[in-house]
């Protein structure tokens, strides 16, 4: 590489070329630093446990061996973890998208007393760290009245612990998605709704028939964000699920790693499995995610 640079300089005699090549060189090195760990994990997951220890890190296996994935899914219980993760993430996402879209529309397009103050309160919930809220939320779920064997006073049973609703709880709403939705609806003209109201539409019909069909990009973005948050969370499912039957993939992965220490190929296969849907979202939904980041920064 260095030799080629020198030749280029001699041929053109321009500093610009040097600077450009140097910039590419830095960019290549930096991207590799970020990409190689993923590459190593994928390659290792396709080797046998023994050859993961003996062969060189980046040497490809002789033949692609997906047996690690199969054994992790069957023996490691990852088929069930995947099911739990899917139910929790999809269920919570549906609720969060519905709730956030309605609320964002309300804050952007309807007038009511205390609107500004209430929206400020929504933003303030963004300051509450989920990891600190997890413990009291656990207590609240445990003492949830009349569910999970609890009396009306919230004692006697386990409440919503070790249940799907309990696992979904923190992702049913997010101040961030309400904020995104409000930003989005503020960009749509008020006149659309006024015209429909003059024609006699109810407030719900104005939202559902006029504004919601225009909100597809918003719905896609909130769906991706909500699904991702629910899928990758670790602390909450760790404390709410009492046993492997309700472990999500992230918790299952951690318990698998503790049980099968040093079986690195299997562990890497499990790690890739636990992130697979998010990787798919990233590769196919990139465009939307970037737009979401831009909106959250207030470009509306």
């Amino acid at each position: 590489m260095g030799g080629r640079l020198v030749t280029l300089v001699m041929l053109t005699g321009k500093r610009k070329v040097v600077r450009k090549s140097a910039r590419h060189l830095v960019a290549v090195v930096v991207s590799l630093v970020f990409f190689v760990p993923i590459l190593v994990a994928i390659i290792t997951s396709l080797k046998s446990n023994a050859s993961a220890l003996t062969s060189s890190v980046l040497s490809l296996p002789h033949h692609l061996d997906f047996s690690n994935y199969r054994s992790v899914l069957d023996l490691g219980g990852f088929a069930n973890y995947t099911k739990v993760s899917a139910i929790v993430s999809i269920g919570a996402t549906i609720v969060q998208v519905g709730v956030a879209t309605c609320a964002g529309y309300g804050f952007a397009k309807l007038r009511f007393r205390g609107r500004g103050l209430l929206f400020m309160a929504v933003l303030l919930t963004l300051m509450l760290p989920p990891a600190a809220v997890a413990l009291p939320l656990f207590l609240e779920m445990m003492h949830f009245p009349l569910l999970g064997g609890n009396s009306i006073g919230g004692t006697g049973g386990i409440g919503l612990l070790n249940s799907y609703p309990g696992l979904m709880a923190p992702y049913l709403v997010s101040g961030f998605s309400v904020f995104l939705a409000r930003q989005f609806f503020s960009t749509l003209p008020d006149e659309l709704g006024e015209a429909a109201r003059i024609d006699g539409c109810s407030e719900w019909a104005v939202f559902w028939r006029i504004y919601r069909p225009l909100a597809t990009p918003l719905i896609v973005i909130v769906t991706l964000f909500a699904f991702q948050t629910a899928w990758v969370d670790f602390l909450w499912p760790l404390i709410v699920a009492k046993g492997p039957s309700l472990f999500t993939l992230q918790v299952g992965l951690s318990s698998f790693q503790q049980e099968y220490t040093a079986q690195w190929s299997d562990i890497m296969a499990a790690a890739i499995l636990a992130s697979l849907p998010i990787m798919a979202i990233f590769i196919f939904g990139q465009r939307y995610l970037r737009r979401g980041i831009a909106w959250s920064g207030g470009k509306s």
Partner: peptide, 30 residues
């Protein structure tokens, strides 16, 4: 219009209260 507005933002506010604000207060009490 005010009533409709509360209808739209209500579910989100209730869930935020139950899942974020009340736990914070519960934490202080415990």
């Amino acid at each position: 219009n005010g009533v409709a507005g509360f209808g739209f933002v209500g579910p989100a506010l209730v869930l935020l209260a139950v899942l974020y604000v009340i736990p914070t207060i519960v934490d202080g009490a415990f």
